[in-house]
Simulated scan of single mutants.
Amino acid sequence: MSELLELAVVIPTFNESKNVPLLVAKLDAALAGRNWEAIFVDDNSPDGTADAARAIGRRDPRVRVIQRIGRRGLSSACIEGMCATAAPVVAVIDGDLQHDETILPKMLDALQADETLDVVIGSRFVDGGGTGDWDSDRVAKSAFATKLSRQVLKADLSDPMSGFFMIRAGIVRDLTPHLNAIGFKILLDLMTGSPRPLKFLELPYTFRVRTEGESKLDHVVAMEYLIAIYDRMFGRIIPVRFAMFSAIGALGALVHFLVLGPLFKEGILSFLWATIVATVVAMTFNFFLNNALTYRDSRLKGAKQLFDGWLTFCLVCSVGAVANIGVAAFLYDAKADTWALSALAGIAVSAVWNYALSSRFTWGRY
């Protein structure tokens, strides 16, 4: 009889084809004598990461692949991988070789030795840990993010931004319906999504220097982190996606006036045509910003998708503008001294209309 599966190592990937065989070899060495499997969850990488993992999986049944088509996001990829195993314990490790796989046995031993322990976290900031080649600016940004996370955390973690941890699979399955799956910080999502404080242990490791592929860190990642914090603090009051959609709509209104003013005041166009141009520019601005941020997990790509999406978005928002005017005019006619409230009501109706229909017909068709 074969030994029972002890551990699943979940590796979310995007464009990490060169690192796949290296990581499998490192896991094989680190977990010698343990019964484990590796689950690569790939967001349809154009560099063939999923195929590289499949090639190994054909000769090594411990290696499995989940290739996600039409959806992206590190947190959601981790959740899919962690829920796709029969192993009682799951670890999450990056595919870029920057996490220290040699501490995985210590993590597993700790969970197997203490049934009350929920999660073991690889930490760069406890004694013995390190950040490798990080410069002072990156260290400062990480410290700020850690301080910000304490607004929503139920635990005094030294490294809540860590993407390297091991947790009991049953906990993940129980928490999955309550996770927001936003951005790159799945550990923060798990720790804040639990109705009870999770008992944790932090083990030190030193963050390695990337040798293959490109870093995924960018300004959008930082934005997603802030979005995740917002969702935990206020998401039950105003859903995060609607809040983002509305905030971008407000920016679009500013763009509208920035375009309208010069075109009309300088006599370049009549007020009607200046308004039409400003409206199209503002809706185009809103469409592309929403595509990049609000709907990043289902964003449209390629010329055809982008053009179709832009066209439907403009149509939806045009109808929303008519609804805005209609509601505001109706309420104002009913009680003329409430012009401000009438205008706000029209804006609210328009925002809900635009959000609901663009979610369905612009980003929900692909």
Rank of each mutant, 00 (worst) to 15 (best):
A38Q: 12
T294C: 05
L293H: 02
D189C: 00
Y295W: 09
Y225E: 09
G252D: 01
G302F: 15
Q67T: 10
A351T: 07
L23R: 07
S76F: 00
V221C: 07
D308I: 13
F144R: 13
G130N: 10
L341Y: 02
D231R: 00
H256S: 14
L341D: 05
G95L: 10
N324Y: 11
L306E: 08
F307S: 15
A84K: 03
I238S: 00
A55Y: 04
S358H: 13
A86C: 11
D297Y: 10
W310C: 04
A243C: 01
T338F: 02
G261Y: 15
D96Y: 03
G252L: 01
A278Y: 02
I186W: 01
V63L: 09
L254V: 15
D42H: 02
L289I: 03
D337V: 09
L251I: 13
D28F: 12
P88V: 05
L357M: 14
R34D: 05
L175D: 08
P21L: 08
N15K: 13
P160L: 07
Q67C: 13
R173Y: 01
K304M: 08
E266Y: 13
V209P: 04
I93Q: 07
G130Q: 11
R150M: 12
K265Y: 15
V139Y: 09
I347M: 15
V90W: 07
C83Q: 10
L31R: 09
V327D: 01
M233R: 00
L306W: 03
V281I: 11
V220N: 09
E214I: 04
R62L: 10
Y366I: 08
S194I: 02
L293G: 01
A282Y: 02
I69Q: 09
L97V: 08
Q112D: 05
G326R: 00
T116F: 04
P204G: 09
S215M: 10
T13K: 06
L293K: 00
S2H: 14
P46I: 12
R124C: 08
G132T: 06
A329D: 09
A247Y: 10
L315F: 12
L331H: 08
V281D: 00
A155R: 02
L226Y: 08
D133C: 13
M107R: 03
C317R: 01
W363V: 10
H99A: 15
L331P: 06
D218A: 10
L217N: 13
G235D: 00
R365G: 05
K199I: 04
D43V: 03
Q98A: 10
I182Q: 01
P88K: 06
T85P: 06
D51A: 11
A110Y: 02
V90H: 03
W36V: 05
A329Y: 07
W353I: 03
I229Q: 05
T131W: 10
K335D: 05
F125G: 04
F245S: 03
I66F: 05
K18L: 14
F184D: 12
V24L: 11
R168N: 11
A29V: 04
K141V: 07
I227V: 14
V259P: 06
P239R: 00
L331G: 04
I93N: 03
R196H: 14
F40P: 04
I121D: 08
R296W: 02
G122N: 03
I93C: 14
R72N: 03
F165E: 14
